[in-house]
Amino acid sequence: MLASITDDPPILVCADLQVEYLTPGRRHVILDGEAATVRCLELLTLWRTNLWPVMHLKRIAQAAWFNPASRLTDWIAEAKPRPGEMTFEHPLPSAYSSSRFVDYMSNIRSVRCILVGFSLDETILATAVDGFHRSHRYQIVTDAVACRQPGTGDAAAYKQSVVNVIGNFATVHASAELIRTSGAIAV
């Protein structure tokens, strides 16, 4: 089923687009960060140009390895939320660990969100699963998501495994499948 994206655009949810994930030598650095960042910024630009709704998630954990006072938790400059864009900080992997996020999501009529960003194996996975259990519809854009390096094994296989798990709870698309030249979006 196709619907015009301009009639009822889904919310673009940018998850954890923070400097921490792109800083070389950091424990949580992601391998395909540059490619995922470019695609995230392209989608973010499309949403902003069309004045479609944008939401930003930022993980503020209390763990020793995640220092919220550090500049590493800052937004990537180009992805920094603009006035009018929603922002939610969450202490646990799921965005639903933010009571403000839960309140917002429970008060919108048609919950359709497109998740992009970093921490695929944490924030994106946990949010998609929590949303599924609340009957919220999420879509994941495979070329606009990234995750940290696994401790061992092939990073690409790890990412694909996480995407396969998320596919049980959300629709999975590549950006080319999601946005068609006609302006239609797969829903």
Rank of each mutant, 00 (worst) to 15 (best):
V162R: 04
L44M: 07
V19W: 02
H133E: 07
V102W: 01
S98V: 11
L120G: 03
A155F: 04
I11F: 06
A186Q: 07
A176E: 06
P24T: 13
R109D: 13
S99D: 04
M105Q: 08
F169E: 07
Y21H: 08
T73Q: 08
V29D: 00
T73E: 01
A157G: 03
Q18F: 04
A69K: 08
A170P: 05
L115F: 12
S119C: 15
A36G: 11
S106I: 07
T73M: 05
N107A: 15
C147K: 00
L115D: 01
S110N: 12
R71A: 14
A77Q: 11
A61F: 02
G167P: 06
T45D: 14
L43N: 11
T73Y: 01
T152N: 11
S182E: 15
W65Y: 15
V162E: 00
V162W: 02
T49D: 13
E20Y: 01
V29C: 12
H56Q: 04
A170H: 03
F101N: 00
A144G: 05
P68N: 08
V129Y: 09
S119A: 15
W52K: 08
L72T: 11
T181D: 09
Y96F: 15
T6N: 12
G131N: 06
S110E: 12
I179L: 14
I166G: 03
V145I: 14
G25E: 05
Y138C: 09
A186I: 12
A170F: 03
F169L: 13
L12Q: 06
M1T: 12
A3N: 06
V54N: 02
I60G: 09
I76T: 02
A157T: 08
S4G: 08
K159T: 06
R82S: 07
M55W: 04
G131H: 05
G183W: 11
D121S: 14
S70K: 09
E34C: 12
P24N: 04
L22N: 10
I140Y: 01
V13C: 11
D32H: 13
L51Q: 13
H56V: 04
C147P: 00
H173Y: 11
G153P: 00
P10L: 07
N67C: 08
G167L: 06
R48M: 03
A64E: 15
A64H: 06
S135G: 02
C113H: 01
N50C: 12
L44R: 05
L57K: 01
P68E: 10
L22T: 14
G25N: 06
P93H: 06
V19M: 09
L178E: 00
A174I: 09
V172L: 11
L2P: 03
P150F: 08
P9S: 07
V172S: 05
A79L: 06
A155H: 10
F132H: 15
